[in-house]
């Protein structure tokens, strides 16, 4: 049914991290360890589901002109809640996530789903959408985090995997390794899903002025859907 589709689309087909490239900042910053990645992913999922519920309930109440500040206030409320909970229940994860926990407030994925989905749909689809997107985000963080932790420190969730005589490659815990692993994972996901590379089109091409469409690239109007934070 279509409810099932709302849930599953976020996991692979519209994975917020791997396909739409949203939420890159937490992905690169906290994936040095699989446990951090899992903590970050689950916290984001919680905030995403809760904010989706509240925003889809209040969609008729919130005036259109002040919707973004209202969304941010709602999201920030849940972020404060989850950071207080983590601080008391899992202080280790709270410490290692640091300020990135508070930065969930400005995570593109959450605001993106609020704007694109929750403000236009009913409560149940919004919950499923938030769950699916959150799960997709958690899975991709866990994947990147696992690869980086195994290669970079020879451990997985703190369990020693690599034998003593093999040195682990520190570069994978450094930012350079993060960019590299993320790039490779995105490439593999694109390959598995048979995604075609985006056409640049003449309007984005630096040589368009001298080329006049002589190259084989046909003009296309698709705009890159991307973001940061």
């Amino acid at each position: 049914m279509s409810y099932m589709k709302e849930f599953t689309k976020g996991i692979i087909k519209e994975n917020p991290n791997m396909v739409t490239l949203l939420g890159m900042c937490p992905t690169l910053a906290i994936t040095t360890m699989a446990s951090n990645a899992l903590g970050m992913g689950l916290s984001t999922t919680f905030v995403l589901v809760c904010s989706n519920i509240v925003i889809s309930l209040l969609k008729k109440v919130i005036p259109d002109s002040v919707r973004l500040p209202s969304y941010i206030v709602i999201i920030a409320g849940f972020v404060t809640f989850i950071s207080l909970v983590l601080q008391s229940a899992a202080p280790e994860i709270y410490d290692s996530l640091g300020m990135f926990l508070s930065l969930i407030t400005v995570n593109c994925i959450i605001l993106g789903r609020a704007e694109m989905f929750a403000s236009k749909n009913k409560v149940l689809p919004s919950i499923l959408d938030g769950l699916g997107m959150g799960l997709g985000f958690t899975l991709s963080l866990l994947l990147v985090g696992s690869v980086r932790e195994i290669l970079g420190s020879g451990q997985w969730f703190g369990i020693q995997l690599a034998p003593d005589f093999l040195e682990s490659m520190t570069i994978f815990i450094l930012p350079a390794g993060g960019f590299f692993v993320l790039g490779v994972v995105i490439a593999v996901v694109n390959r598995l899903m048979n995604l075609k590379p985006r056409e640049i089109g003449c309007h984005n091409c630096p040589n368009a002025e001298s080329c006049h469409g002589a190259c084989s690239v046909t003009p296309s109007a698709d705009k890159k859907e991307g973001g940061n934070t």
Binding site: E167, S168, M169, T170, I171, F172, L174, A176
Partner: peptide
Amino acid sequence: IVLMLSFTSY
């Protein structure tokens, strides 16, 4: 450089 950052002591 990759080796330098990965296995600095070696």
